[in-house]
Structures are given as structure tokens and as C-alpha cells.
Write a protein that binds this DNA or RNA. Structure first.
Lengths: 241, 241
DNA sequence: ACCTGAACACCGTTCAAGT
DNA sequence: ACCTGAACACCGTTCAAGT
């Protein structure tokens, strides 16, 4: 009972911290401000969150927990992979200030492992050889995180005319910009671009997949539908539960 | 003369700040610490760097300046693109603490534009249609930045046995991890993996290229080697200088 | 068991002042 | 023209103390 209370209080504190980051940015996320929002003295936070660094790790946990339901999406491997990717990007829009923490902190919490596991599963179901699965998982998650962060931090943003102006002002120093002035004049649609990049990565994945393994359904169903001899390696556990 | 002195002093301050970040991390990068390293009072920095935020932008500038020579690499489009990508990753290893700033600040300085221009040029030379060039440039630069940051911040890192242990401890919650336990047991070579991902992106690029445009040499030579009728759009300026 | 209050060693930045 | 010093409003975190 007391233990449960501690966990609940911890979540209460982390939720307040994430809300504060959402509303006023990472710079405004001080232990003192979080404490004030929870209605307590700064020192009262320490037994629950350790210190500020651990509090930031806690925010990562909280965001991963929000993302996790996407890992349960049913359907073909590419449907599942797309769902997780789009959920990952949507998370960035919901928590633009805290989101970059995902890229800078090791993903070793149970929820992070579960999420990675769902991506591993999708890649395995796509027919990717085991040796390539972790690498392609990192390729996809790097894309999702990097793209979303580029978007929210404004790295891609200079859709305002000033960048274009500056680029052409550079003149001979930026000839390719001049050659592309037509397409650079119209700002891109970031939703469309994200999906296009994801499509490109899906092609990369299928290009690495075994020729015979074009199964697009979850492992159990695929295993049931295929003759056992098409399995390239023994599957240990979990297939029937 | 006085103007030049100001620029030189600014660079001196930024160089000291970058060195400080390299040696003691971003958290240790205070205005006071930079000032002490330069041998001056904190307030003396302000006329040169504006404020702390602008100082961080200055570090981005400094890193881009280090990266820029890679944009001058000669050779075929893919050679040039690879050179820039590998230089971008090498930069991360040289400045692990400051590097993530590249992902979080808009790239609108002249050096940034020059770098993007070199990537645009490589993609154009690859035969990518103009409409796809900016998107694929963002795909490539997102990969380089995201991968390098994942590497230096330890997001990929749990090559230590603990992650694997934790994943398998999760048991039924991480079945794909179990299925992959063989490949997950051996830590990846990050150099090789970076290159493999880059190869994948090069394939994406060529898959988007015009069928006839497999030119692998800089624009001027390619333009000279091909009949003018194969050009899909008029090239404005720069081609002959 | 849970929280508070005072204190310490830091921050970034302002302002008025020095030479 | 270039820099300093004192001051202000903040930080994260410690410690001893309250109830």
C-alpha cells in the first residue's frame, strides 16, 4: 500500500513535469517549478525522482509509455511498422520540448525494450535475416527520431522566405540552391515527406528480405500458414503464447 | 582593423567554449567557465557572443566550418556524398558534447547553406529529379546526424551485457529479442553499420534517379559529356563557372 | 513516513562604473 | 573601446529539523 503510494506519487510528479515542459519548455523545467506545480517544496521531490537527471529519464519513460500502445497494432508487418513510426512522430508533436530526450538517453527501460521488440518482430516478419534486424531497427528508429526532432526544433523549418533569400544571396556560393529555386520556393508538406521517407525505408527493408519470406501477417499466423520447412531458423518459445 | 579584431576575439571565445565542451561536457559550459578560460570576466564575453544561446549557435557555426572542407571533395556524386557523410560522423566523435546542437538549431548560416548545397549538387548529379532533391537531402542529413548522436549519447550503446540480460529477463514480453539472442549477443561494429545504412540510402537515391541520368561526375563534366537534349530542365548559371 | 527551511555553491544577465 | 564589480533573480542539492 505504501509502496503503491510511492509509485503513484512518482507518476504524479513526472506527469506534472512533462506538462510543464509541454507548456513552458525545457528551460523552464526546474525542480523548483515542478515542486510548485505539485504543491510541495523542491526537496520533497527527491525521494521520488532521485535528482534532476533521473527526472528527465522519467520523462523518457512516460513518453515511451504513451508510445507503447502503437506496438500492439495488428496487421501485416509493414502496417505495424508504419503505425509505430507515425505514432513516434505524433509523440514529438505532443511533447516537442521533451521529445529530444529520447535521442540522447539509452533506451533500456522495459517499455523501450518492448517497443524495440515490436520493431524486431515486424522486421523478422518482413523476412529480414536475423543478422540485419538490429541494424535496420536502428535505421528506422533513427529516422523517426531524427526526422521528428528536425521538424520540431526547426532544423528543416526555414520555409520562411529568409532562408531562400539568404541562399540566393550567397549567389555563386550556392549554385545548386539556385538550380533548385523552383522547388525550394514552395514549402514542403512535412506529413507527406515523412511518409515518403518511411516508404523509402520500407523498400530498403524488403530489399534485404529473403526472397521467399514475404509474409505480411503476425508470426503466429504466418507460422501456421507456412510449411515448417520454410523456417530459416528454429523459433524459440513465444510462438504459441 | 578594429572590426577584424572583434571577429578574431569572437572566434577565440568560441574556440575556447568548444574546447571546454569537448573536455568537460555541455553542463560545464557556463559563461563564467568560458570567461575564465579566456582569462576575462564573464561580462566581457557579451559584446562578442551576445548571450549564452547565441554562443551555442556560434559553436554550431564552428563545427560546420570544420565540416565544410568535406563539401569540396572531388569525384563522382556518390564519392562526394559518402565523404560528407563520413566527415559528419567523424565530427561527432571529435565534439561529442556539442554535436547534438546541430540537430536542434536551424541550419541557416552561410556555411550550412554551402554544405547543403554540396549535398544538393551530389543528388542532382545522381540524376534525382529536382522535386525530390530537398527531401532526400533531409533524409541523408537526418540519418548522419541521428546515427552519430545515437552513437555518442549511448542510445545504441547497450552493447554491455546488461541490456541483453534485461531484455531476456523480460521474458515473454520480448520474444523477438529472444529469437535474436544469437545476433544480439555480439556487439555491432558501428563503423560498418554506419556505412551499411549509408549504402542503403544510396540505393534509395539511385532508385529515385532518372533512368538515363547515371552520371557520376561533377555537373560541368557531365553536361559536357551528354547531349544537351537529355537535360530535363534548363540549368541556370553556375554550370560554366 | 513524509515534508520543510535554511544554507551552499553555483547560474545568466543587468547596470553603473572604471581606464 | 574594452573591461570590471557588485548585484539580482534564479539554479540543483545538502543537511538538520520538524510532525
Amino acid at each position: 500500500m505504501a509502496e503503491l503510494g510511492v509509485e503513484a506519487r512518482r507518476r504524479e510528479i513526472l506527469t506534472a513535469a512533462l506538462a510543464l515542459a509541454d507548456e513552458r519548455g525545457l528551460d523552464a523545467l526546474s525542480m523548483r517549478a515542478v515542486a510548485a506545480r505539485v504543491g510541495v517544496t523542491p526537496m520533497a521531490l527527491y525521494p521520488y525522482v532521485g535528482n534532476k537527471d533521473a527526472l528527465l529519464d522519467g520523462l523518457v519513460d512516460l513518453m515511451l509509455a504513451e508510445l507503447l500502445p502503437a506496438a500492439g497494432t495488428p496487421g501485416a508487418w509493414d502496417v505495424r511498422l508504419r503505425a509505430i513510426a507515425h505514432a513516434g512522430r505524433a509523440l514529438a508533436h505532443r511533447h516537442p520540448a521533451a521529445y529530444p530526450l529520447l535521442l540522447s538517453r539509452p533506451a533500456v527501460t522495459p517499455d523501450a525494450v518492448r517497443l524495440v521488440d515490436a520493431l524486431y518482430r515486424a522486421l523478422l516478419d518482413a523476412g529480414v535475416p536475423a543478422a540485419q534486424v538490429p541494424r535496420l531497427e536502428r535505421l528506422v528508429s533513427t529516422y523517426v527520431l531524427g526526422y521528428a526532432i528536425g521538424e520540431i526544433t526547426g532544423r528543416f523549418a526555414p520555409a520562411d522566405p529568409r532562408r531562400h533569400a539568404r541562399a540566393t544571396a550567397a549567389g555563386g556560393a550556392a549554385p545548386a540552391h539556385q538550380e533548385l529555386s523552383g522547388v525550394l520556393a514552395q514549402p514542403p508538406d512535412w506529413d507527406t515527406e515523412f511518409t515518403a521517407g518511411l516508404d523509402d525505408l520500407l523498400h530498403v527493408i524488403t530489399s534485404h528480405a529473403h526472397a521467399h519470406a514475404t509474409r505480411g501477417v503476425p508470426a503466429e499466423q504466418a507460422a501456421a500458414a507456412r510449411p515448417a520447412t520454410t523456417r530459416d531458423r528454429p523459433i524459440r518459445g513465444s510462438a504459441s503464447r
